[in-house]
Design a binder for these strands. Structure first.
Lengths: 190, 190
DNA sequence: GTCTATAATTTGATAGAC
DNA sequence: GTCTATCAAATTATAGAC
């Protein structure tokens, strides 16, 4: 699954689409708004992404590839704690970066309402993220414990972002990250 | 803030609106769809709820009142663990009941996109829930610890529901609840 | 790649009769 | 409370010229 290459204009469109989706979900984007934002007409957006589902799929896939690239190999030499810290930093950046929630959190919540193709990409994101976290913790925990912790961590981060955005209070995410770190350190200790 | 009383038909409308919003967010409802579902015309829906924001406000307020009524007084004689178990049961029911996420999770994720009145109701839901959980834990923890744990718990439950729905796997919520319970019991113990 | 033009549908909302 | 009728605007999408 090598990352797809897009033309500069297509990438511009994906940028704007991602920003809007992160604030209001899949229906928060319209071809006309996207077109105006990047300085073309709506028919041109359809040229790059014929159907809205194509656009949604591309936005989520690119997002997933970008996040996973930022996290690096979960099985390399770094300590589990160092990997976890990086995971937290990536999520914090996603929040402060435009004060919006993780793309797949908004879309995941409305998964049953999405075009099946888009929902599948969202599912893949969560599977990828929980697997990454499980592998990152594998050095210090049993496989069962690492799997349980990974599910808990990814879920808690998603939920904390919802609270942060809904309450307009970034400290909620910080609070959850602190609690998670304390929790994992205890588990790693024994 | 005594609960508002609605006519039977208005309640029917709120039922359908809530179910749809929980699957697809605020934009997942339309006056025409609601009207058809309850057997009237769209103009009649506007009679009960003039603007869409009025409808959204009412759905969230009723939801909050129902959930908080199910949880009971956080400061009564039950043990913190018993209260937590009830909280978990309420969330589990919300998930299995129509396989949809907590209403305020979907809406919270798109909070910055909602009419301000609706966003305020969502915020109030999360404040109410974290305060309830904090008070439920107050019997066994310091105020600071209880506050930290409450934020963590409510966030983790929201996020776990997103994972469950997005992955089509109810066990994610169960996993998180198990982990949270273990975590709280450790905190209560020392 | 981008444009004009347009089709077909849906949406939130209102006026006024019953 | 519900209806008919209607509106203005927005939406996804396509055909065909440049």
């Amino acid at each position: 699954m090598e990352p797809k290459i897009y033309s500069p204009k297509a990438n511009e469109i994906l940028d704007v689409a991602e920003a809007h989706m992160r604030m209001g979900g899949f229906d928060a984007i319209s071809f006309r708004d996207l077109a105006r934002a990047v300085g073309v007409k709506s028919a041109s957006v359809h040229y790059h992404f014929p159907q809205k589902a194509d656009l949604g799929k591309a936005v989520v896939a690119r997002y997933r590839e970008r996040v996973i690239a930022a996290l690096g190999d979960p099985q390399d030499a770094r300590t589990p704690i160092a990997k976890l810290k990086l995971l937290f930093a990536v999520y914090s950046a996603a929040l402060s970066d435009g004060d919006s929630v993780c793309l797949c959190c908004v879309l995941g919540a409305e998964a049953r309402y999405l075009p099946p193709d888009v929902a599948a990409e969202v599912r893949l994101f969560f599977e990828t993220m929980t697997n990454w976290t499980r592998d990152a913790l594998a050095a210090g925990l049993s496989k069962a414990k690492a799997t349980e912790a990974a599910t808990h961590i990814i879920g808690a981060l998603q939920g904390a972002m919802v609270l942060s955005v809904a309450l307009g209070d970034d400290d909620r995410l910080k609070n959850t990250q602190k609690t998670l770190m304390r929790f994992v350190k205890k588990d790693l200790a024994g």
